[in-house]
Nucleic acid binder design. Sequence first.
DNA 1: TTGAAAGCGCTAACAT
DNA 2: ATGTTAGCGCTTTCAA
Lengths: 336, 336
Amino acid sequence: MSSERAGHPVTMREVAEAAGVSIATVSYVLNDKRGARIGPEARERVLAAVQQLGYRPNALAKTLSSGSSNFIGLVADAIATTPFAGQIIHGAQDEAWKHGFVLLVANTEGDAAAEEAAISMMLEHKVRGILYSTWYHRAVTAPVALQETEYVLVDCFDPGMPAPAVVPDEVAGGYAATRMLLDAGHSRIAFVNTTTPSPARSGRLAGYRRALGEAGLEFDESLVLSAQPEQQGGYAATDALLALRTTAVFCHNDRVAMGLYDGLRERGLSIPGDIAVVGFDNQEVIAAHLRPPLSTVALPHYELGAAGVRVLLGLEAAPATKPLHISCPPVPRESI
Amino acid sequence: MSSERAGHPVTMREVAEAAGVSIATVSYVLNDKRGARIGPEARERVLAAVQQLGYRPNALAKTLSSGSSNFIGLVADAIATTPFAGQIIHGAQDEAWKHGFVLLVANTEGDAAAEEAAISMMLEHKVRGILYSTWYHRAVTAPVALQETEYVLVDCFDPGMPAPAVVPDEVAGGYAATRMLLDAGHSRIAFVNTTTPSPARSGRLAGYRRALGEAGLEFDESLVLSAQPEQQGGYAATDALLALRTTAVFCHNDRVAMGLYDGLRERGLSIPGDIAVVGFDNQEVIAAHLRPPLSTVALPHYELGAAGVRVLLGLEAAPATKPLHISCPPVPRESI
DNA sequence: TTGAAAGCGCTAACAT
DNA sequence: ATGTTAGCGCTTTCAA
């Protein structure tokens, strides 16, 4: 096992020489090529030489020669801004790996020029396809350069383009959240939605309404509040919420719930005793560690990344006209 | 601009033909090769053809031919477990990109076999080097396969190997945290450290002691508590802390501080009125949004990733025998 | 069962 | 100033 840390790496030709066979033979045994039966002795000599020399095939040469690379590109608009983004990289990486692919990652901070550059770079590396992802579910207009290869939108969709996309099922998520409250016996449920227009805002609301409807409850618009989608927003919404005299509240996300926890506590109210609360996102650091731990609905970022890869590789079909919806599973904890 | 979404991509040869020059000429103008002066007309024809045909150089062929790739591998033990990991990917990616390199990412969940596989794959792609990173500062023993290329340890170090490493400066961080409290006039400061032995545990303690010492305060061992490094730990430590009758407390991390906030609040105490608290990590979702916002010290994950790349590329020297320490800047907010 | 040889798309001498 | 050509390490016909 030398593998030549110093000189150039061991090549196939050297292995061939060492094994006393032709380089074609080496290629055959290494790739288990059927069609070409190799004598057991030759095969063994090759394997021995490979071992001996610490040979590493050159994936780049292989790609060049065979014509198909094993790269999958992932361009993200913000792998840092949120803890979530990491999960989609993770899911994509795992799934890609599982199928023999390698992830090329690029961060763009949403900058158009950076996006162009990232996509170019990926195209130049002859990626098998590109995952274009955003850190929160939204509409985007896919960079034109994407057209030069296969691609799928992850956690976003392009209204003007029938491109494969994978997004969380906000409606089902909102439904699940409301359902948890309903199942616990609540019938007067407030919804602190976000002020920001988005698929999350409308989808979760739709789910909330549907759950209410199914339960035979009438939708009461006055029970829907708006708040900045952060702790501060939840905190600020406390009084308005209490004025509604509901026994439960569904918060647009975990951060809002966290703020609300503070507001409620300050007023001496207890959760879930005085009011039950459920969040959305399942942001680990928060949800699992609030007092009491927050019941919520998970945003399936890992699955989004994984499904994106599957769709890209044609392993899973995405509906032709609309995005593939990934479900948001409820995560019951102690706030209900 | 055809770029042949269907047929094979446009090659350099085609550009050459279209421009009526040799392929070498194309290569020259595309790479701005000095040494070979190209006539302005020829250059222009080439550029036009490139534009026309939508030519994309094949980075793989380029690498194969030129002998040096522009890949940098990043193997992480857990890009998902913590919000932090994303930051080191981000920092590494930005810095790599800045120098014309591309990040190959692999997640291993700490599994040795997966690590081997990931490193192999990177070696086979002829990466320029590998960043081996962990999601929390700790000692590791670097996989042997790393020896086959250049590498730097990020957020970890190998006690048995003089390998370049980049880690956060825990001592200076502990010092900075304590210093914030001291500067605010406190002289009796508790430290809720973690129960888990680690560079963070000993380093932050050392920093705490040093700050105290410099301030002419005597180190009082009884002021150092131990808690599980999470919300629950901080919450559970409340009574023990109060028994110490200190006016300030330095928590091992933000999560502990978050738990402590709950404990304190339950007992009707106010922050910073009754007791000032500072955390560590600067975990955004928590620190910035607690009530009051938590003063803390930042764990420089982005910088760790970026510095790792710089060291790998030889742009920044790491001390020969010990890890390069990246500073942990204080982030004052309202809890003091 | 194996080897020879022609590329894959590009770079870099070396010619001209 | 520009063209020829020999590789880079590997895959893959086509022969033997």
